[in-house]
């Protein structure tokens, strides 16, 4: 890795000040992704600001029955937390479906949201990549693209977002709390944290320089059942080919609430509110689920090697909805 300065921040104010002083510095917490990228020369920050000592490790219920998760809560702690297991089993399932025990012990909530794509070509400095080096082109297009995205891509980038946790959080309507450089707190919906590649795939998210994620807030869960279904090439330690996070409430035989998010298929945890709206007020049926899958995949575009993800997403979604609603005609 390229030489860098290392600074350990004692508190939030110090961290924000350090970032204000060096706009090209990077925060580091668990480092499970950033250090790999630095060793490969893909990330070359001149300074790392270690936020590991900040007081962002607590989890607490919010007054409205939700949950506030400090940005430094590790993935392992979050997945195992009794409140998460009781009220947001979807989140627990998603986290435990990702990475390995060792990585989950180290990786943090904030860091997980900001992990970068696992596109093979992004990871190799010898390949053109608009995300790594804007303007060089996209080697994944026309290359080996089996793991790439089918939704939300552009002519400049077809990489997919790797997180499981973030997919669950998007289905759970998570909000992200940050501190701006000037110390102001800002709150945004999780989907507003991410941006699609468009013509600027090198910019993954909407955080301003020096802006620090301090917490993720989950609203009280929807009534009904939750499920995270991840489909991958081996039983453990593999990124999702397709994943579905869904929470669904059925009353008197009718779907009254539905929220769904999808992983492995888009440059960000994907959500389709049109497809959700289709379900509301309806009686569960295979035909309904197929219409829902039609809506989700209406704009999907394969690259050849990843065409199967369209079929796989449809089938996984329908199976997940069947699971959540019980046997349906």
């Amino acid at each position: 890795m390229m030489p860098f300065e290392y600074l350990r921040a004692g508190n939030e104010a110090d961290a924000l000040q350090a970032a204000a002083d060096r706009p090209d510095a990077r925060f580091i917490a668990g480092g499970t992704n950033l250090l790999d990228l630095m060793k490969l020369g893909i990330e070359r920050p001149p300074q790392l600001i270690d936020i590991g000592g900040l007081d962002l490790r607590t989890m607490a219920e919010t007054p409205d029955g939700g949950l506030r998760i400090g940005a430094l809560v590790t993935n392992a702690e979050l997945a195992a937390h009794p409140l998460v297991r009781a009220r947001y089993p979807l989140l627990s399932q998603a986290i435990l479906a990702g990475a390995s025990g060792q990585l989950r012990n180290k990786a943090t909530t904030g860091g997980n949201l900001l992990q970068r794509t696992r596109c093979y070509y992004f990871y190799d400095p010898a390949s053109p990549c608009n995300k790594r080096e804007p303007g060089t082109g996209c080697a994944a297009i026309g290359g080996f693209n089996r793991i790439m995205a089918i939704l939300g891509t552009s002519a400049h980038c077809i990489a997919s977002h790797p997180s499981d946790m973030a997919v669950a959080m998007r289905a759970l309507d998570a909000r992200v709390e940050t501190r701006q450089r000037d110390g102001q707190m800002e709150v945004r919906a999780l989907d507003a944290l991410y941006r699609l590649p468009g013509e600027t795939p090198h910019i993954d998210h909407t955080l301003a320089p020096g802006e620090l994620i301090t917490a993720v807030v989950l609203p009280a869960p929807l009534n009904g059942r939750q499920r995270y279904r991840k489909v991958r090439d081996r039983a453990s330690y593999a990124f999702a080919l397709v994943s579905v996070a869904a929470t669904l409430a059925v009353e008197d035989g009718m779907i009254v609430q539905a929220a769904m998010a999808f992983g492995g298929v888009a440059p960000m945890p994907w959500r389709d509110r049109t497809a959700e709206a289709l379900l509301i007020g309806q009686t569960p049926s295979q035909a309904l689920f197929e219409r829902c899958a039609d809506a989700v995949t209406a704009e999907a575009q394969g690259q050849g090697g990843n065409d199967f993800k369209i079929t796989l997403l449809r089938r996984t979604l329908a199976a997940c909805l069947t699971d959540l609603t019980g046997n349906v005609p």
């Binding site: 295979q286 689920f289 197929e290 449809r314 089938r315 329908a318 199976a319 069947t322 699971d323 046997n327």
Partner: peptide, 8 residues
């Protein structure tokens, strides 16, 4: 799909 997801 119809028969794949059937759990009977």
């Amino acid at each position: 799909l119809t028969s794949a997801t059937s759990r009977t």
